[in-house]
Nucleic acid binder design. Structure first.
Lengths: 228, 228
DNA sequence: CATCGTATGGTACGTCGTACTAGTCAAGCG
DNA sequence: CGCTTGACTAGTACGACGTACCATACGATG
């Protein structure tokens, strides 16, 4: 019951940072450096590869020093995730007549960023919405509204697109494992082909054209969304 | 590089089970009992609430006894997940003229089942496809094909629906947290309303009609998918 | 009786997140 | 100058985890 304080960690506000820099040794710890290395670790070793000890090692610091800058490990995950989802909309996005192109561009960028850091896909659903995610939703909302989607349909439209991108990215990130896994999957499927004749025939699980499939499905959805 | 054997665990094939039952004490361990209790634990305590020690406690057994029936903890997750996604298609599903109704029914059942066990949503993307998932995909495939979706579009159509359901369920499962979280989110959003005017205005994050939104988005998608 | 496959569980190891505590160092102040 | 204070670093230690290894028990079979 007790409300978690979700404390904003007690690190300094960095009001002034004196120009003193130690020449060759490690730079001082900072939230930014911690997050950057955390992302590196996650990219290289996956979600279980990130441990506070390893993180400290890479940073050349003691483990407990991290906790000055960061509340706990969950905090590291949150920060790493949001840092990966940055989005700078091109300035003319607000005005372009090609709303559909704008939407597709943003969503494909979103997907691409997450796939570049596959751990982010499986992390996102468990985390709060960071500022970068919110600003993407804001952009979606504005664009769709401008395109003429009825107010009553707007939220459903946004969520549909969000859901689609989430699902597609998650699926892609988890399917695209190793060669051995892929081989094992194929073998298992053909062994079971009697039970699943239709998906076996259409080679559903072996289709490698992820990008094309993503785009095609997105077009289906946008077709359905377009104001008539 | 070494291929994980993914060993089919060494538990007995249960060719004969002798009728000897110990009257009042614990029934013997079995894969089924382990999975059932694991699901109970996951439902009650969430994903981190499942530990091998707790599982053994609830089963009245020693921790290491579990490992006779189960390869490791990952195996428990896989089994628990698949056990939750069972689907018995009604027999007439293959023939009904209302293909759209059939699809909606199956997908809503899928979503409902996952929401009844919210951990399953965040687990699924990281796991292999169990038989119950495959049979749902098979049903989808057959129905869409019968409905006239072109072969070239079939896989994209299936994945679109899959992606949509995955995304929607994951989002719903992770958003629907506690009261305090909901309150905190609302507060945070209004504080930031200057940055996100559109989604603030449409109350995107406060909309509670999950079921309706799901259905509406699904209709959008099916509109786009329907053969013209 | 001896042997063997099935099944159980105790002990112990290495790893994890992090609470607690003590330390260093620079800036500010008398 | 010495003293205090606050920002920051880090060692030690604790409890919990997954599970390898090993010893055991029991019914069936020889």
């Amino acid at each position: 019951m007790a409300a978690k304080p979700r404390s904003a960690s007690k690190r300094s506000q960095r009001t002034k940072l004196p120009p003193m820099q130690e020449a060759s040794s490690e730079p001082p710890l900072s939230r930014e450096r911690i997050v950057a290395i955390a992302v590196e670790l996650l990219d290289a070793q996956g979600i279980d590869g990130l441990t506070m000890r390893r993180l400290a090692d890479r940073l050349g610091s003691g483990v407990m020093s991290l906790y000055w800058h960061v509340d706990n490990k969950e905090d590291v995950f949150d920060l790493a995730l949001d840092s990966v989802l940055e989005y700078r909309a091109s300035p003319e996005t607000g005005e372009s007549p090609d709303w559909r192109g704008d939407v597709v561009h943003m969503l494909e960028n979103w997907r691409a960023r997450m796939l570049r850091h596959p751990w982010s896909a499986s992390l996102l659903p468990r985390r709060a919405l960071g500022p970068n995610i919110l600003s993407r939703l804001e952009m979606l909302s504005k664009t769709l509204s401008r395109a003429g989607v009825a107010d009553a349909d707007l939220n459903a439209a946004i969520w549909s697109l969000w859901n689609y991108v989430m699902g597609a990215t998650l699926t892609r990130a988890s399917f695209d494992l190793s060669e051995e896994d892929r081989a094992a999957a194929q073998q298992r499927l053909t062994r079971l082909s009697e039970h699943y004749p239709t998906i076996e025939r259409s080679r559903l699980l072996l289709d490698n054209d992820w990008d094309g499939t993503f785009r095609k499905g997105l077009d289906f959805l946008l077709d359905g969304l377009s104001p008539r």
